[in-house]
Nucleic acid binder design. Structure first.
Lengths: 130, 130
DNA sequence: CTTGCACCTGACGTTGACGTCAGGTTCTAG
DNA sequence: CTAGAACCTGACGTCAACGTCAGGTGCAAG
């Protein structure tokens, strides 16, 4: 596949794909004219990259864990890093759930000001930050 | 409370609090010497701001919905915006859950290469991006 | 062959959420 | 009263993940 097709299928810009290559997140073969050529698996890899970014993993970490996470190949040297990041993702999930609950509460109150506001507590017991 | 105490309790920098005031996210009273003074509720508000940022809400949206979300005061004009953002938060949660599952899989494989890898599918059926 | 779109390589611009530094002021402990 | 910590206001720096522009090349169609 050429770059434009990958970009469209993965829902990202062409620029982003060139950036990923530069960052060594997504290698590309080159045709005789210098054009990039990608295997079909590239689309899924881009989607994974996007999810990792969306999960808030810093680019350095993405670069380190990507080969391992993408292929499923275990790498004992990365275990600690993987566990740490899993922990952070978990915390973020809790944050997001709290925000969602908060939004739900306000939405419910907006739709029906007499709604049962007691089901959701005011503040969902924040945990210590970094 | 003075700015340093709020910063410590909320786990953010003093600079961040001044930035929040500048962005009209967190107003501050001023003492005679020009020093900022915050009510006790400021700590919770800062934590909420952090969570909203962490949830990926753009600053413009945070600025708009913060008063309403913080106080719980309903504002019908914001209903659409709130619902939209709730939707986006939901999508991010799904992303994070997928990433966590992925990390769990690799961690399990690293710890025990003979583990049951079939329980988690290779790709958790990505939904269309923005 | 040429038109036109997709692609190429630099290289500079952008945005958000602060970090950091300079140079001065205010507050608090002894 | 005085030292030092905590605070103040600019103002410039930073970093990631691209956007955008300029100027040139590759490739499939008619």
């Amino acid at each position: 596949m050429r770059i434009g097709e990958v970009a469209e299928k993965a829902g990202v810009s062409v620029r982003a794909l060139r950036y990923y290559e530069e960052q060594e997140l997504l290698p590309a073969e080159r045709g005789p004219g210098g054009q990039r050529h990608y295997p079909d698996t590239a689309v899924a890899r881009v989607e994974l990259i996007q999810r990792l970014y969306s999960a808030g993993l810093p680019s350095r970490v993405v670069r380190e864990v990507l080969p391992c996470v993408d292929s499923g190949e275990p790498d004992p040297a990365l275990l600690g890093l993987l566990v740490d990041e899993r922990e952070r993702v978990d915390e973020r999930i809790d944050d997001l759930l709290a925000v969602r609950d908060r939004l739900d509460l306000v939405i419910a109150l907006t739709r029906d000001p007499e709604a049962d506001c007691s089901r959701l507590e005011r503040a969902p017991a924040p945990r210590p930050r970094r």
